[in-house]
Nucleic acid binder design. Sequence first.
RNA 1: AGGCACGUAGCUCAGUGGGAGAGCACUUCCCUGACACGGAAGGGGUCGGCGGUUCAAUCCCGCCCGUGCCUACCA
Length: 885
Amino acid sequence: MKTELPKGYEPSQVEQKWFDTWEQRGDFHADENSSKPHYSIVIPPPNVTGVLHMGHALNNTLQDILCRWKRMSGYEVLWMPGTDHAGIATQNVVEKQLAAENKDRHELGREAFVDRVWKWREESGGQIINQLKRLGASCDWQRERFTMDEGLSKAVREVFVSLYDDGLVYRDNRLINWCPRCHTALSDLEVEHEDKQGNLWHLRYPVKGSERFLIVATTRPETMLGDTAVAVHPEDERYQDLIGKSVLLPLMDREIPIIADDYVDMEFGSGAVKITPAHDFNDFEIGKRHDLEFINILDESGIINENGGSYVGMERNSARVKVVADIDTLGLLEKVDNYTNAVGECYRCRTTIEPYMSKQWYVSVKSLAAEAIKAVDSGQTKIVPQQWEKTYYEWMNNIQDWCVSRQIWWGHRIPAWFCDDCGEITVSREDVTACKHCGSTNLRQETDVLDTWFSSALWPFSTMGWPEQTKTLQKFYPTSCLVTGFDILFFWVARMMMMGIKFMDDVPFKEVYIHALVRDSQGQKMSKSKGNVIDPLTIVDEYGADAFRYTLCAFAAMGRDIRLSTDRIGGYRNFVNKLWNASRFALMNLEDFEPAERDLAKLTLSQADQWILNRYAFAAAEVNKALANYKFNEAASILYSFTWHEFCDWYIELSKDNLYGEDLSVRNATQTVLFSVLEGLLRMLHPILPFVTEEIWQTLPGKREVESIMQANYPTGALIATDSAVVNDMELVMDVIRAIRNVRGELDVPPGKRIKVLLDCKSEPVVAAIDAGQGYIHSLARVENLVVGVAIERPEQASTQVTDEVEVLIPLADLINVEEETARLNKEIEKIQKDVGFFEKKLSNEKFVANAPPQVLEKDRGKLSAAIKKREILEQSLEKILALK
RNA sequence: AGGCACGUAGCUCAGUGGGAGAGCACUUCCCUGACACGGAAGGGGUCGGCGGUUCAAUCCCGCCCGUGCCUACCA
């Protein structure tokens, strides 16, 4: 039964149809009882609030290519999918909804709010999952996980409690990054620094008991309300006499000491620094060193509190304006400079963060990091490209304790209970009703939740059922590979390493492949919070998922960012269509063909057959090599040129006469090769082009052993051994065809015009090769009369082209324009003269001749003599032509 | 401030210690029975600049210029 293929490839129905079939049939499902070797990848879980962007598209396309390739290569593949609850981001989404209803979460209360978030998630969360499916992602969707699932939440508790029991979780009152809008602490990583145009205000602080002023500079003048010292460098000669004295803090009328500390840079500004220990990280350290007072002047929303004197109740930015105005009124504003500095912003809402004193939960990570460093150092986990290892080490070596508590409601609530009677803390896997220390039931559970990245850190094993010892874990942990962008190397990869080693006693993945970042047209990082994302689904709609995937694959060269161009996508859409039409050609010529009855080994193969089989073997080997090394772009490039330039441009054209000819055995052999190469090519392309390859593959004649191309074997090399001498003969014939076409093109011979051609060959074997391939020359070069031989009788007037083994002579007759031929020959001579010059110079260099390896020398000498010979022939030819004038 | 990339054809990007590549765009010719989302033939680059190592450098090293990113406590 044959199905006619439409003339042009139409992706939309095909894609939907096959994806549904695959998924319903369970083709993506990983069997933990399989005896096959395992290959596993956990998806970087997209935020449940997420909308598919280019980064996801690239990331997941690459994972899908690997998974499909490995699945076809005989592995039991688990690609574990799921989404992240994205604490702050998701809470923000629902808060915005509430705001639209003129409500806020505090009115609802915690429980109702969390219910509402769950409801939001049921209704509109996770749309990204369907978007991933449209790309063709072959995840084991039956196993889809969510970081707030019961099982994963259990894993979170287990980890938190055992870290606490090991003394690796503690609470401390420190200065942290505070988002006054989200009302939560943030880890250092969650603060993004952006250079902003601001001012540097120079304030005059009166020295007590003197007419002098100390000038201090600040970018945040409102913090002066919380100043508790002014610091100068201990060796600064300007201020030696002032150390130990004090200044009167303007506006607050507070006497604060002048202290000496090495931290101060004498070169900067006046060399005197105001110290606000409760609102600046450096000042915090100085405050501790000098035992200064810590005055917190802000509340949780960034509003001046009762410690801010008359400024109480003012928002921090208004307070800044007022403080500066008031200082100015007092005549204490020395000057205002323009100043650019890096301002920390909340990575979720872009609000300027505030260093803020607060009691938080921390994970002590130094010891965990040490193990994680060791694992990469010893090669247990390999980072590809390797250059990222340096970045990984750099961060791991300087790692700070991880602030894991967040003052939001959506997330894993910290399993700690405070006892109102004895003041002790009970941390427990199970909810508790009585204090472990005094037995009191007067308990309050910690209201904070954990950093979203805490649960993400457990993803490779929590998704597989941990803390239960599941078969899935046994079979698929550690995972084979993690595919991710470098932007979450610290957020996620480093933390998975630490947690995996700590709790599974083994690294979470053997290899980490770090791919490029897809940027927007300005080269800016695309991110959800910046809102500069381009919808990949538009691209899929317009060009098809396969073309889009091929583009991403071709762009995924290591170590460079990607700026997507739609021209390029169009090019690969054309490629998919080319494949489609080549297949149509094949199907049209295979109507009477039954693959089961044919055996490549028993056939007499033509030059062209042997040649394409040889090229096929090369492409198959190279693609596997490229994929094994994560060289996705190379894989794409190999398959592109094999498909288009070798299979379509040459083999299909060469096969036509054989297919259309009278000789049935030739036709049969050609059909078999055409079928076999196309069928194998489809398998080679399937990981990148899952949809179109399945559609065509299902239409091919004959029966196959498996239901889907995704279950077929991935080609690794030759279909059958080929004779390299015959392959070389074919290349020789192709050279001749190219040479004739060149003359025709350059001399404007009408494409339909058949011409006479003489081939003067260097040797008898060359003659034999050409004889065997002369049919190809006739049809592909449009020749009607071909004379072949060694030292043949040459026509008086002919256009000459030279290949390695053959002089191609085309009698001038009436079809060649003498002027054009002269110009053509001059161009050719000029070209070859350059070569001659190049090699003459190189070979006349004594040092080169003395030092270069013999093979290089020999090769170059051969090239020189060939070039000289070619020049000679062309020059003689030119002389003859000129004689005609 | 430190770190890491990048600078190759008009554009977007590959690539290699031994005579520069692709896609798109461009020029000429062609609707030849798979495909005009096509075919054939072409044009186009002192591989950012200056030095060094080498018989040989676009590739390795140093410096400089330009661009981007990451990390960082300069008020």
